[in-house]
Nucleic acid binder design. Structure first.
Length: 411
RNA sequence: GCGUAAGUGGCGGAGUGGUCAAUCGCAGCAGACUGUAAAUUUGCCGGCUUCGGCCUUCGAAGGUUCGAAUCCUUCCUUACGCA
């Protein structure tokens, strides 16, 4: 019996998109679905009840963060991170692969995982080989991660202590964390890295994927109740993306993650390349994407799950989604605006509070601002993806997409 | 009335002869945020600007000096102390 079952219920005619159901040991996920990020076994500013009430079906936590605090063995002894945090639905953990990027190549820079077309590409002038063995402490940029063939050495962002992740270690930790779906340990590359480095990193990620899979299967108990998703890489390059999908698609994963960096304007295309190759009968999770237009493109191109820190992060910082685009509640124009954030939104925040009240909470740094902002943004995206699912089922996806995009992004 | 201390940009508060349109914090204005080093962070924040600068400022008025927010004089105001 596989830990994860996926059934497709309806397909988007002539496209890769589909609506389906993932069955996990902790319940079903109607897909496509937006996954809520709860990095440290908490969706920041929200109780699990609030998360459930806004319609979220899954919570994704992070291996690296929970390993550092409180420690994965404590989480294991607590009964897994879902039980630990009092979330009873399906759960996922990321592998720590993103931290290879955020604490490594992207450390101290403004480089994100998405690059705009035409953006100047700054070279990674060194291959990983030449970096092998270099003292971590000597990194001139003060980065907190160092990659070698076997794994990654991290410095804790909390206290600077040194820690080491390998694919096997990531599996061991994720087994302790106990999520229903876990990810293979991968390297998320910078969009600024050149082709040669993207290839090198991708091939290493494939080797790590195999090692992750072997380590997972070797633990019979864990692999009977936790599904493992392999992570496709390849950066912005078609030949790499397709190769990665072929190589990983041939391995016996329970599902797939699509990770790494993209051209902002070509992401949907790139996702299409990958999903045309990946096995159709397994769920696909697009890692770290949460802009409305990106979600439409990804759903249309065959992705089933998405997670993103943006709704909770920007929600805490005052930027909220509306059907007419994002608004920043810290702007002076909302100080006396006694209307809801979005009159068409059915979330707790919109049903009970005004923009002026939220503006007041944000300006005065009240904790409730983060809570109400997060509830709204999460509900907005969860509901948006729910509507995409409904639109796939009743064959109105294109109409829905066109009207939503036209209104949201009109200037 | 006498004595002492102090008066700096919206507020608090540095500066105590040139490198000062004046550190810094707050408030204000705008921006960013896409597998969370994030309840974070960036820029602006006297006026004008062709962004090179230019102009007007540090309670008020005089003065010393090549040069003053910084020194001197008087005045005004505030706080504390003594009457």
């Amino acid at each position: 019996m596989k830990p994860i079952d996926f059934k497709i219920e309806h397909k988007l005619p002539g496209k890769l998109g589909r609506a389906g159901t993932i069955t996990t040991p902790h319940g079903e996920i109607q897909t496509p679905a937006f996954v809520t990020v709860g990095t440290k076994a908490t969706v920041k500013a929200l109780t699990p009840e609030q998360v459930a009430d806004l319609g979220a079906q899954v919570v994704l936590a992070n291996t690296y963060h929970l390993y550092l605090e409180p420690g994965d063995e404590i989480v294991r002894d607590a009964g897994g991170f879902g039980k630990f945090m009092n979330w009873h639905g399906p759960t996922m953990t990321d592998s720590g692969g993103f931290q290879v990027f955020s604490l490594g190549a992207a450390f101290g820079t403004k480089v994100g995982k998405l690059a705009k077309v035409g953006e100047v590409i700054v070279g990674e002038d060194e291959s990983a080989d030449s970096r092998l063995g270099r003292e971590l402490i000597c990194d001139e940029a003060g980065k907190l991660a160092k990659i070698d063939e076997d794994g990654v050495t991290f410095k804790s962002y909390r206290d600077g202590s040194v820690h080491r992740f390998t694919p096997e270690r990531s599996m061991e930790i994720q087994h302790n964390l106990g999520a229903d779906m876990i990810f293979a340990f991968d390297e998320c590359t910078s969009p600024a890295a050149p082709l040669a480095y993207q290839r090198e990193a991708m091939e290493r990620t494939h080797r790590w994927a195999k090692r992750s899979l072997d380590a997972h299967k070797a633990n019979k108990e864990a692999s009977s109740k936790q599904g493992l998703l392999g992570v496709v890489q390849g950066g912005r390059h078609r030949e790499l993306r397709e190769e990665s999908a072929r190589v990983l698609g041939a391995m016996d994963f329970d599902g797939y993650g699509i990770g790494g960096s993209f051209d902002k304007d070509d992401m949907n295309t790139a996702v299409g390349w990958v999903n045309s190759i990946l096995p159709e009968d397994k769920p696909r999770h697009l890692l770290g994407i949460g802009e409305p237009e990106d979600l439409f493109g990804a759903v249309e191109n065959g992705c089933d799950l998405f997670d993103c820190v943006a709704p909770t992060r920007t929600g805490r910082n005052g930027t909220l989604h509306t059907h007419d685009g994002k608004i920043n509640l810290l702007n002076a124009r909302f100080v006396r605006d006694f209307t809801p954030v979005d009159s068409e939104c059915d979330c707790y925040t919109c049903k009970n509070y005004t923009r002026a009240y939220l503006a007041h909470l944000f300006r005065s740094d009240e904790m409730l601002a983060a809570t109400l902002g997060s509830i709204h943004n999460l509900r907005f995206l969860v509901a948006l993806v729910e509507k995409m699912r409904e639109a796939i089922i009743d064959d109105s996806f294109d109409t829905f997409k066109t009207s939503f995009i036209a209104r949201y992004y009109k200037k």
